[in-house]
């Protein structure tokens, strides 16, 4: 799976401070560390960037490009800031993100065409987030045809099916997988990506990693192309490199509904099995899911 490092984010205090002071050091440090961790893209998340967005994005892109050769994913809802960043990206960049909302179609999508950038398009539309796989399909098909009409080819479209926290709605997490399975048939050639950490929003911090990692294995099997992830989750990177096939196979078995003799497993393996069962909706989520038999 193509991994996009999520760690340069204005919500992080160090980053917002560095940005305000135009101090490159903390940002470049993070860029280098993520690059060394082995991700494929760096996400630069400026949030709404209402004030001074243009200058901020420009400075941020330059600063990061000085430190890393990785391609960038520019993450802001401000189209002016977005354009300022796209204009100076060295490589083919990724717009994070557009959606089926009218405003986004009018202001974000044309940027993808103008700068030959890739564009993440979410299934969100003016009616909100669709509640099931069929609703997601319907929404994204409309936006994709609009994008095609604007001259954006499927190869440049990265669909974001929108992942909700498992602690909020387990059914949605399952519907997400159903949708990813059908994506290749719906719109041949499109890619997909997801804010993977969203899955574990609301879950106690020390338990978030295993949820994210298990889900990466699961959606990878469904055909997911990429994910925006915590670059410093070493186990996640390792799973993605194919270094933990035992765990991967176990998770696949849970997905197939196979009976697993948990007695013979290590405690780590058991944790992955329990986590996969929760994600599949077989067990109702609670923060203590790893402690239950």
């Amino acid at each position: 799976m193509i991994l996009i490092g999520e760690n340069i984010n204005i919500m992080v205090k160090v980053i917002s401070k560095a940005l305000e002071e135009r101090n490159p050091e903390p940002i470049q440090k993070l860029a280098i560390a993520q690059t060394e961790a082995g991700v494929d893209f760096l996400d630069l998340n400026l949030g709404p960037a209402r004030k001074d967005g243009e200058a901020q994005m420009e400075w941020l892109v330059r600063t990061v490009q000085e430190a890393s050769t990785l391609p960038l994913s520019l993450d802001t809802t401000n189209p002016v800031a977005m354009e300022a960043g796209l204009a100076i990206c060295r490589d083919k960049a990724l717009i994070n993100s557009a959606s089926g909302k009218q405003e986004s179609i009018e202001k974000m999508l044309p940027l993808a065409q103008k700068y030959s950038a890739g564009v993440i398009i979410s299934v969100l539309n003016d009616e909100g987030i669709p509640s099931d796989a069929a609703g997601r399909a319907e929404s994204i098909m409309e936006t994709i045809s609009t994008a095609n009409e604007l001259g954006i080819s499927n190869e440049d479209i990265w669909v974001d099916p929108i992942l909700l926290p498992v602690s909020v709605d387990q059914q949605q997490v399952v519907e997400y997988m159903e949708f990813v399975k059908m994506l290749a048939d719906l719109a041949p050639g499109v890619k997909s990506t997801v804010g993977l950490s969203n899955l574990s929003n609301g879950t106690p911090g020390e338990l978030r990693g295993i949820l994210n990692r298990t889900y990466m294995i699961m959606i990878g099997r469904c055909g997911q192309y990429s994910a925006i992830v915590d670059a410093f989750d070493k186990e996640l990177i390792s799973i993605n490199k194919g270094e933990m096939t035992g765990i991967t196979e176990l998770v696949h078995k849970v997905m197939d509904g196979e009976d697993i003799d948990t007695a013979s497993l290590s405690s780590k393996e058991r944790d992955y099995v329990k986590t996969a069962a929760v994600i599949m909706g077989k067990v109702l989520y609670s923060h203590s899911w790893l402690e239950l038999d």
Binding site: A134, G135, A137, E138, M141, I144, S145, N148, M182, D185, L186, A187, P188
Partner: peptide
């Protein structure tokens, strides 16, 4: 009017 047969199938299923 749909890009793929599968897309059409989805439309059929949702009654649209």
């Amino acid at each position: 009017g749909m890009p793929t047969c599968f897309g059409f199938a989805m439309k059929l299923a949702s009654g649209k």
